[in-house]
């Protein structure tokens, strides 16, 4: 494992910790998209089915379990927690997730390495992760003054993807025969989706202003 991959994973981990701390400390999930969190849970569960039949390393196993449990925990807070659930604004979080999930499933059934249940579900999770942030970005755009921690959460998530791009470049240069086109193309699209957000995040940070995305 190279430094970019490790830094990417740690950034991903940190983004979730920031989100959980924000929700727990402020007892509010204002500006957090439940739809995106549910899509991530679906992504993690369909991708990490291999927990049941393949072992890579203790590190991988721990991270997989952490991602599944933490997104489940965020969803529990938003849906079930007595005070946090009252701060969830479902009227703003209206993205139609089936418009994301269905095309991803059709694509996964069409473009995959192997037509088996686990391989199609794994491919589906790769495609779905690329677009799962969209409900969150739309919600941020509708929120006039974005909460600093929510902004940081999305920034860290985008940073994790950018670091994965560097990880792939490093692996291409150092590992003969290494290639994974489905992952590369999806990951590049996923990172590109954050470009607009990065621009406004860095602009607001430099000007010392609250983040607000133009609609």
């Amino acid at each position: 494992m190279n430094i970019f991959r490790f830094a990417g994973d740690m950034t991903h981990l940190l983004s979730i910790i920031v989100l959980l701390l924000k929700i727990n400390a402020t007892k509010s999930c204002a500006g957090v998209s439940l739809k995106t969190q549910e899509l991530y849970l679906l992504v993690f569960v369909t991708r990490y089915l291999d927990l049941l039949y393949s072992y890579i390393s203790l590190y991988n196993t721990f991270m997989k379990l952490f991602f599944i449990c933490s997104s489940g925990c965020v969803i529990w807070y938003i849906r079930e927690h007595k005070t946090v659930s009252q701060t969830y604004d479902s009227a703003q979080d209206t993205f139609r997730v089936l418009f994301l999930a269905c095309p991803c499933m059709i694509l996964a059934l069409t473009v995959n390495h192997d037509f088996t249940v686990t391989e199609v579900l794994w491919t589906f999770s790769i495609y779905l992760e690329a677009v799962a942030i969209l409900p969150q970005l739309v919600l941020l755009q509708r929120t006039k003054n974005v909460d600093t921690l929510t902004g940081n959460y999305v920034f860290l998530l985008g940073g994790y993807r950018a670091l994965y791009l560097l990880n792939w470049i490093y692996r291409i240069l150092t590992e003969p025969g290494y290639r994974q086109w489905i992952v590369w193309i999806s990951g590049t699209i996923q990172t590109a989706i954050y470009c607009d957000f990065f621009y406004y995040y860095i602009k607001s940070w430099r000007n010392n202003e609250r983040l607000s995305l133009p609609s």
């Binding site: 890579i56 991988n60 991602f67 390495h113 025969g177 994974q180």
Partner: peptide, 10 residues
């Protein structure tokens, strides 16, 4: 036969 890349990333 196409070799499948190992799923060693997260």
């Amino acid at each position: 036969v196409e070799v499948q890349p190992p799923k060693d990333e997260l």
